[in-house]
C-alpha cells in the first residue's frame, strides 16, 4: 500500500429507514486504495458492496443515511462535503461505471455527444474541441471506426460497446478514482476480458486508483491488487489478493472460495455455504454478523469485533483460520 492513499474510508456506517424497520446496511466499513492500485470489493447480494459505492459517490437512495464515517479523497472528506463540492468532485475526481451500461447511457443522445458533454462540464475542454476529443476517447477504449460510432445511439451498439462508451465517459476528465460496479456482469467472458484489460491499461497510464465491485471472486482474484470481502454490511477480510486467495483467514472468505466453481475439481468437491444472511433489521444482531452461520464460532465471538484498522491483512474474526 502506498503511503498516501488515493481514497481512505474509515468507519463508514449507513442505515436505510424502511416501513418495516431500520436496515443497518453498512457498519464500520474501512479500507484504503492507493494511487494506481486496483481494489476489489467482493460479496454476495445484500453484502453492502454497492451501498458502499453509492455512499462514496453521494448518490444513496433518499431512504439511506450515512450515520458515521469519513472518506477522504485528496484532502476532501466526501461524507461531510457540501452538495456543490460533491458535484465538482464527481466526474472530475471520482467517476463511476455501472452494471448494465445500456440503461446508464442516455438512449436518445448519440454516444459521442454524451462524452463531449462530460468533457465540457468536467474536463475544461472548449465546446469546439469536445467532439474531436470524444472521438479520441472512443479510439482509446478500442472502438473501431470511432468517428462513425460517435454518431451512433446506445441501442445501435452491443453491450460490450456500450460499456466501452461508459468507460470513455468515466475517464473523460482523468479522475483520480474510478468506481466500477459490476462492470462486466452480463457480458460474455471474452468481452469481459477485453473490458477489464482496457480499465487496467488506462488506470496504469494515469495512475488512477480503481475500486471494482464484483460478486465473482475469480475475477477479483485475477484482476485486483487487494480484495475486500464483505458480508452483511461488514468488511470481514481485507488483504493482498494472492495472500487472501491462498490463505484466507476469515471462515466466510474460505467458504466463498470453496463455493467458486473454478476452485473445485468436481461438483462433489464444491462446497455450499450453510445458512443465509441475517436480517439486517434485527435489533439483536450479534457483533459478528457471520457468527450465526459460522462453523468456528467460539465464546469470544459475542464480544465486539476487532475494528478494521488499516492493517496489511485485516480479518474481522476472533477465531480466524
Amino acid at each position: 500500500m502506498t503511503a498516501v492513499p488515493a481514497l481512505a474510508v474509515e468507519d463508514l456506517s449507513v442505515e436505510f429507514r424502511t416501513r418495516s424497520g431500520v436496515v443497518k446496511a453498512l457498519e464500520h466499513v474501512s479500507f484504503a486504495v492507493g494511487k494506481g492500485e486496483t481494489l476489489a470489493i467482493v460479496g454476495e447480494s445484500g453484502s453492502g458492496k454497492s451501498v458502499t459505492a453509492y455512499a462514496l459517490m453521494g448518490i444513496l437512495d433518499p431512504a439511506g443515511r450515512i450515520t458515521a464515517g469519513r472518506a477522504v479523497l485528496g484532502g476532501l472528506d466526501l461524507i461531510s462535503a457540501s452538495a456543490s463540492q460533491l458535484a465538482d468532485v464527481r466526474g472530475r475526481e471520482i467517476a463511476m461505471i455501472f452494471q448494465n451500461p445500456r440503461t446508464a447511457l442516455n438512449p436518445i443522445r448519440p454516444v459521442g455527444r454524451q462524452i463531449a458533454d462530460v468533457l465540457m462540464r468536467h474536463g475544461n475542454v472548449p465546446r469546439v474541441e469536445a467532439p474531436a476529443r470524444a472521438v479520441d476517447l472512443l479510439r482509446a477504449v478500442g472502438i473501431t471506426d470511432p468517428a462513425r460510432r460517435a454518431k451512433a445511439y446506445p441501442f445501435e451498439m452491443s453491450g460490450g460497446m456500450c460499456q466501452r462508451v461508459m468507460i470513455a465517459i468515466a475517464l473523460a476528465a482523468r479522475p483520480a478514482l474510478l468506481i466500477a460496479d459490476e462492470p462486466t456482469t452480463g457480458l460474455d467472458v471474452t468481452t469481459q476480458a477485453v473490458i477489464m484489460d482496457i480499465i487496467a491499461e488506462l488506470a496504469g497510464e494515469s495512475g488512477m486508483a480503481t475500486i471494482f465491485i464484483t460478486h465473482d471472486l475469480a475475477l477479483a482474484g485475477q484482476r485486483a491488487d487487494r480484495v475486500v470481502v464483505m458480508h452483511a454490511g461488514h468488511v470481514v477480510e481485507n488483504a493482498a489478493t494472492r495472500a487472501l486467495i491462498a490463505r484466507p483467514s476469515h471462515p466466510y472468505t474460505a467458504e466463498l472460495i470453496a463455493a467458486t466453481p473454478d476452485s473445485a475439481a468436481s461438483l462433489d468437491a464444491l462446497a455450499s455455504i450453510p445458512g443465509s444472511l441475517p436480517d439486517l433489521r434485527r435489533a439483536d444482531l450479534p457483533p459478528c454478523r457471520y457468527s450465526e452461520r459460522c462453523p468456528r464460532k467460539v465464546e469470544r465471538c459475542d464480544a465486539p469485533l476487532p475494528r478494521p484498522a488499516l492493517a496489511e491483512h485485516f480479518v474481522a474474526c476472533w477465531n480466524p483460520l
Binding site: 473501431t144 452491443s158 471474452t190 476480458a193 484489460d197 465473482d216 475475477l219 482474484g221
Partner: peptide, 23 residues
Amino acid sequence: RALVAAVPRLDGIGLAKLRLSGE
C-alpha cells in the same frame, strides 16, 4: 482456446494475453 483463456481463474494464473480482436 480464446474462450477458455478469457475465463477468470481464482489462482490468477492463465491470464494469457489471448484476446479476440474485433467483432
